[in-house]
């Protein structure tokens, strides 16, 4: 888009239209999220801006929905459940995902294409279909309405994300480092923990974060295989959106947006660190 004086007037005009269009698209992408944030501070139980809010009356804003969120046992226990499920899921998915990515990145891997297709498939299969299948699978095993059930289901769903993220960091990984380690007499296991793992750690952490976020946000599988015991934040939101529409949901949504922003920044840091470790040049 380098602006050159050699461009004709009509070209420059097209350039402006193009920029305006892109600006509109960015607004379309981000605006819906930003609208929620001020509304969650609404003192009135409405889902829209009151005239007081538009005049920036300090009385029109309050933390009351955040307070109610925090004081409600229902929401708090679902927050605890969500954190527990997402953390265990992230750990399981990372371990399995790293193994898969390591194996798939080896050039001598047999049936790579097929195995890759299987590992990525939970990302492609519609969530309701996966949820139904998991329900049929869990029912005879007594896993319906249990934490292990939900965690297994979420590990399945998040595994592709870890595999994709870790595989991306393994691209351009200098294999001679591993050979150097082996030639210095270290056992393969030691080479993994002292050479490979520290180098791919940023990628692994990004994958784990990805798994955490997806499990934390997931509602459909929870609706199918969990019971009230495993009430999670998204499920509570889902119930709220379908039944009693309460502005607490906006407060929760704002908190979740905040969490996404923090995670996104962490990921960006990890990506830069990983690039530096692998010696990829910032172009």
């Amino acid at each position: 888009m380098a602006s050159g004086s050699y461009r004709t007037l009509s070209e420059r005009m097209w350039g402006w239209i193009f920029l305006l269009f892109c600006g509109g698209v960015f607004l379309f992408l981000v605006m819906p999220l930003l609208v929620i944030v001020p509304l969650s501070f609404n003192a009135q139980p409405y889902f829209t801006f009151t005239s007081e809010m538009l005049r920036f009356d300090s009385e029109a804003f309050s933390f009351r929905w955040y307070e109610q969120f925090w004081l409600s046992d229902k929401w708090r226990s679902s927050l605890v459940n969500s954190f527990f499920i997402a953390t265990v899921t992230a750990i399981c998915a990372s371990i399995l995902g790293v193994l898969a990515a390591l194996g798939l990145s080896r050039p001598e891997m047999p049936y790579r294409r097929l195995i890759n297709a299987i590992l990525i498939s939970p990302l492609i299969v519609p969530i309701v279909v996966s949820a139904a299948g998991l329900f049929f699978f869990f029912a005879p095993l007594g896993l319906i309405g249990t934490f292990p059930g939900v965690i297994i289901a979420h590990t399945v769903l998040t595994l592709p994300f870890v595999v994709i993220t870790v595989t991306a960091t393994l691209v351009g990984f200098d294999k001679s480092l591993i050979r150097a380690g082996l030639m210095c007499g270290a056992s393969p296991l030691r080479v993994f923990f002292q050479v490979t793992l520290p180098l791919i750690l940023p990628g692994v952490l990004s994958g784990a974060l990805f798994a955490f976020v997806i499990s934390f946000d997931e509602v459909v599988v929870v609706l199918f295989v969990a019971s009230v015991e495993q009430q999670t934040v998204p499920r509570q939101m889902w119930a709220g959106l379908r039944e009693e529409l309460s502005p607490i949901i906006l407060a929760v949504a704002t908190v979740l947006i905040g969490v996404s922003v923090v995670l996104l920044l962490m990921l960006e840091m990890l990506r830069r660190r990983s690039d530096r470790l692998r010696g990829v040049e910032e172009t």
């Binding site: 609208v35 929620i36 829209t48 998204p234 889902w238 949504a253």
Partner: peptide, 28 residues
Amino acid sequence: LILVLLPFWTSLLVRTTSWIVLLQRNGV
């Protein structure tokens, strides 16, 4: 890229909620 990734990373439920807030009869 961050502007693109932010909605990508935000919960599907949150994004649907925001559309409810925007589009409903008494919405924004």
